[in-house]
Nucleic acid binder design. Structure first.
Lengths: 270, 270
DNA sequence: GCAAAAGTGTTAGACGTACACCCATGG
DNA sequence: CCATGGGTGTACGTCTAACACTTTTGC
């Protein structure tokens, strides 16, 4: 798979880029299963000119990785996600451009329903369902699949679910989201009970009528449910082989034994 | 936490480094709980000269990230881990050295019992138990904690367990490893049953006598158990904003729906 | 009343946990 | 025969899947 045509420029410092996968829940269609959606941008340069690709760009030296991801993502798609998590870093020399090695730090992001609606159609940005993607530039397809895999395995995190479904929500909406991500049918009755028994939700008191049937109760996540969540996916600290004056101990966060406590970049704004 | 003294060199391309956390199971002590161990190297340069730190170095442009991690790790500690997985990439500008931004791709690695024994003592490399670490350079402590957290959450992976315990193994050894990583007592009887019922193990036919009691049966992991394992943590593909001729579809691997099929770098040699 | 979705109940099996118990072995 | 760990049995509570059922609404 890797071709070994490394040129003589190999000793130049590698380029560092940032690439993002943005995920959202497809707006409700009439009597259809809701799917996962992601925006792609059309490439305006070679290589892969005209093909669809993930938003990305070079790492700005005066920005953190998260900031760079957020900015390139916002400037190309006009979306302002509330959730941003590092996915993986790719750095094979076979990916070099003209012999200059390329390192790409990939992120995945979540945007809610409201943000999806606000995105006005552009020629160079378009939404695609996860099961109906066009051919993608580079190997962005693999990155998308990896992001979807991560999403499925983060589904038990209230943080993730909340960003996708938006608050407040009905249990049916939550259920639809679960089915969209898992890609399989889930018993509604059991899902209700599990969610209510989890203690993560609280009723808002409001109701929502979506069709012409009985209205459904609205819920939100309890404040405490979002705090610990049992997983410190996003280290707050930073590191380097040469790093000046950075001996601050990592802040240990609350309940769980999460080593890299504060999730600085998970929830960007609230 | 971030100090804003970004110098005028901000537009230089960022340096890219690779850092690794190597984990192993502490050799059996007489009647003591076995703990997790990791080797640290003493810094021979400023900053943090003389302090303990994780092995690391610059990314070689003609090497993949995994190869770079493996080589710097091998050259500094003389260890040849069989498992190597990307952990996280740190890139805050506050971590810059002399104004040149620093991006560090971190890996975690596993070495088995045999490898630990073969490592002859050096002045600049030493093992430390996970609950008795010295002060570390930079914020390497946070990285170690994060690696340990990852390890605890990868414990259900036969690949991970196998590398730490070494084959063949008795159920008691497996159990001891589990307790070491989880940091809590686990019922031996139930652990036995769960493991045997999982279908991941097969008897070698051999037995091992560790004390003066009844010898224990030896097991190994079934070949198939290591294949799918339900999690494609390590993408095989590569990516870049500028990438030449890289439109190969990702190979989808077997049983599960793992998107980035082949775990190229998880198991380095077998 | 009818359709459709909200919401509740019930049951049977799978699974985890605690703990008692027998077996094999060397001293 | 005894101490120690290897290995088995069992009973109980919890969780979950499956599915029948009642309630609320608009037409």
């Amino acid at each position: 798979m890797n071709r070994g045509n490394v040129s003589e420029r190999r000793h130049e410092p590698p380029q560092v880029g940032v690439t993002s996968v943005i995920l959202a829940l497809e707006p409700a269609r009439e009597h259809g299963r809701r799917r996962l959606w992601l925006p792609l941008v059309r490439r305006v340069r070679e290589p892969f000119l005209g093909q669809w690709a993930l938003p990305g760009g070079p790492l700005r030296a005066d920005r953190s990785l998260e900031q760079s991801a957020y900015e390139t993502l916002a400037s190309t798609t006009d979306l302002r996600p509330r959730y941003l998590e590092q996915l993986y870093t790719f750095g094979d020399p076979a990916r070099s451009r003209g012999g200059v090695p390329m390192v790409s730090v990939c992120y995945w992001a979540l945007v809610g329903q409201a943000d999806v609606a606000q995105l006005e159609p552009r020629h160079n940005v378009q939404w695609f369902a996860d099961d109906d993607l066009p051919p993608l530039a580079f190997d962005h397809r693999a990155i998308v699949d990896y992001a979807l895999w991560r999403l499925r395995h983060r589904m038990d995190s209230p943080r993730v679910v909340r960003q996708l479904v938006g608050e407040p929500f009905t249990l049916r909406q939550l259920h639809a989201l679960t089915e969209a991500i898992r890609g399989e049918r889930v018993d509604v009755a059991n899902y209700r009970r599990r969610m209510l028994a989890s203690g993560l939700l609280e009723e808002t008191g409001g109701v929502l009528r979506e069709g012409r049937q009985r209205p459904a109760a609205l819920y939100r996540f309890r404040p405490g449910a979002l705090d610990d969540a049992g997983a410190p996916w996003l280290p707050a600290g930073c590191e380097g082989e040469q790093l000046e004056h950075m001996n601050t101990a990592p802040e240990r966060a609350s309940a769980d034994d999460n080593p890299l406590g504060s999730l600085t970049t998970a929830l960007l704004h609230d």
